[in-house]
Amino acid sequence: MINEQIRDREVRVIGENGDQLGIMSSKDALKLAREAELDLVKIAPTAKPPVCKIIDYGKYRYELARKEKEARKKQKTVEIKEVRLSPNIDVNDLNTKMNNAKKFIAKGNKVKVTLRFRGREMAHMQAHRYILEDFAKAMAEVAVIDKPIKQEGRSLTLFLSEKR
């Protein structure tokens, strides 16, 4: 809220250079802001009494937007990369998939390891669970199990994330 939008009876006022001007009526605070050719902006509406500051509102909005942009820049988005395996995978193929998973984890992504079953393989799903367990053991030096092995329809899935 700015200027006339502030309807509180009393407000705590902070001057343009950060000094406390004390508690006064919102009309008096607005009059001070007008004399300085600036705006009266409500900074902390939940405080008792609400805190208002005499500043240039356009500049204030610009600063807020810049801080928000900086915060978004520093945020890290974690992607989930998927590695698909089949029950009759060979050792060399499994090693290749592990290397790919290690690269993904090194970049800071989470890895979803999926063991897909087709046709008759569905009858022996639990018998092939060891493939995912071995995969997790081999990745233990760089990754930790985020979510344990879980059956989802025609596949078994395992989530790995970077070891801290």
Rank of each mutant, 00 (worst) to 15 (best):
I149N: 00
E162D: 13
D56V: 07
G18Y: 02
K102H: 01
Y57Q: 13
D90A: 10
K103C: 11
L156H: 05
A44W: 09
K42F: 09
K42T: 08
V113H: 07
R129K: 11
N92D: 15
A143K: 02
A127F: 06
G119Q: 09
V111Y: 07
L158T: 01
T96G: 14
R61T: 05
N17I: 14
N17D: 04
I43Q: 07
V11T: 06
R7D: 08
Q126T: 12
S25L: 10
I2D: 14
I2V: 15
K81E: 15
E70H: 00
R120D: 13
I89Q: 01
H128D: 12
I14C: 05
P87H: 03
D28C: 08
I43P: 00
A101I: 07
M125P: 03
E68T: 08
N95E: 10
M1R: 09
P45L: 03
M98P: 00
K27D: 09
K97Q: 05
E68Y: 11
I55S: 04
L64K: 12
L85P: 07
S25E: 03
R12N: 02
A29W: 03
N88Q: 13
I6D: 05
L38E: 00
A71Y: 01
I6L: 08
P50V: 07
A136F: 02
Y130N: 10
K147R: 09
P148V: 10
D146Q: 07
K31Q: 10
R154N: 15
A47R: 11
R154A: 14
K112E: 14
V111T: 00
R34P: 01
S25H: 02
R72C: 14
K81S: 12
P49C: 00
V13N: 04
F104R: 00
E37R: 00
E68N: 06
S155H: 04
K42M: 10
I105L: 08
E162Y: 15
